[in-house]
Computed example of a mutant assay.
Amino acid sequence: MTPEASPGTDLVLAKVAPPSSAASTAPAAGDIARAPEAVKALELALPTAPAAVDKASTVPVKRGPSIRMPRVKKPTKKGAVSVVVMTFAAALVATMALPAYAFGGGGNFDSGVATDASLSGAQTLEVPDASAALAISRDNYKAPTTEELAASREAAAAAVAATEAANRAADAAAAKGATASGSGAFTVNPPSGSYSGAAIVAFAEQFVGVVPYGSGASPDTSFGCDGLTQYVFGAFGIYLPRTVSNQAAMGIPIAPEDAQAGDLMVYPIGHIGIYAGDGTMIDSPDWGRYVEHRPVWGSYYFVRIVA
């Protein structure tokens, strides 16, 4: 057998060849003679026992702190929900911050917009003097004086007094008419003169407070507003048709400052009366009332009947 070194050791082993035949089972004479040499070689190759170590002369080796690797925990449902919530919150903050960042000019999305750096220099602003081009004008309105206010109050008081006087006259005429109605038909006084405005007013005055309002055109029954004007002008030979619009078409419209007693006063709401002068009128007003002589009222225009 031949000594052979084994890898990684200093041990030398004897390699024994396998027997090739039955005769080789018996050791040869030369092998027996070389046996002591092989045993000696094997003893040289075996490692010797380590020498005794002097513990007093040895220096202890310092060991560093042990490093413990963190344990990876298995993800739980609660942790997954927390991750989703934090991700959503971060996305929400970013969504809210981007418009503010863009509005503040930090993103500089528009290259044509001036930044803070370009506006840091001196700036000037010119304002045209527009007041120089404005023309100063005044309207014609003037505040009323103390005298004008006093006159207005006096006129209002006079109108109220005239209304009260007309109401008292109407009540007196109604009482007179009630007494006369028991003795017979209403007696109409004929016109005292030829056709004129004053004659029209004088003739119509006798029906004030006597003839009630109605749909008729005779003092024996009732007077509608157009029935009164038809009857009064008919007494002077002037025919007026019924209805307010037809009677207004028979005359000539005149300006308010040219109005005279005896002219017709036409109301767009469908009413008509006789202008008596001095801001008063004679008309048959409404159901439950009699012919009245009262102050003018409302919106109207004047129409003159030419004989």
Score class of each variant (00 low, 15 high):
Val39Ile: 15
Val39Gly: 15
Ala41Trp: 08
Ala49Glu: 12
Pro50Val: 13
Ala52Pro: 04
Val53Thr: 08
Lys55Gly: 08
Ser57Tyr: 01
Pro60Lys: 03
Val61Met: 06
Gly64Ser: 07
Pro65Trp: 08
Ser66Val: 00
Ile67Gln: 02
Arg68Leu: 15
Pro70Phe: 03
Arg71Lys: 15
Arg71Asp: 13
Lys73Leu: 10
Pro75Gly: 11
Thr76Asn: 07
Lys77Arg: 03
Lys77Tyr: 05
Ala80Gly: 11
Val83Asp: 02
Val84Asn: 04
Met86Phe: 15
Val93Cys: 12
Ala94Glu: 04
Met96Trp: 09
Ala97Glu: 10
Leu98Ile: 13
Pro99Asn: 09
Tyr101His: 09
Tyr101Lys: 14
Ala102His: 09
Phe103Trp: 15
Gly105Cys: 00
Gly106Arg: 12
Gly106Met: 11
Asn108Gln: 13
Asn108Asp: 12
Phe109Leu: 04
Asp110Trp: 07
Asp110Tyr: 03
Ser111Trp: 05
Asp116Cys: 06
Ala117Ile: 10
Ser118Tyr: 03
Ser118Gln: 04
Ser118Ile: 06
Leu119Gly: 00
Ser120Asp: 05
Gly121Leu: 06
Gln123Met: 15
Gln123Ile: 13
Thr124Asp: 13
Thr124Asn: 15
Glu126Met: 07
Val127Lys: 04
Ala130Trp: 14
Ala130Arg: 15
Ala130Gly: 04
Ser131Ile: 03
Ala132Tyr: 04
Ala132Thr: 00
Ala133Phe: 02
Ala133Ile: 08
Ala133Pro: 00
Leu134Thr: 02
Leu134Phe: 00
Ala135Pro: 07
Ile136Ala: 12
Arg138Thr: 14
Pro144Ile: 11
Pro144Leu: 14
Pro144Gly: 09
Thr146His: 10
Thr146Gly: 12
Glu147Ala: 07
Glu147Gln: 09
Glu147Leu: 04
Glu148Lys: 05
Ala150Ser: 04
Ala151Arg: 06
Ser152Phe: 09
Ala155Asp: 06
Ala156Gly: 13
Ala158Cys: 11
Val160Phe: 11
Val160Ser: 11
Ala161Phe: 02
Ala161Pro: 11
Ala161His: 01
Ala162Ser: 05
Thr163Pro: 07
Thr163Leu: 07
Glu164Ser: 08
Glu164Lys: 14
Ala165Pro: 11
Ala165Val: 05
Ala165Thr: 10
Asn167Phe: 00
Ala170Val: 09
Ala170Met: 01
Asp171Gln: 12
Ala172Arg: 10
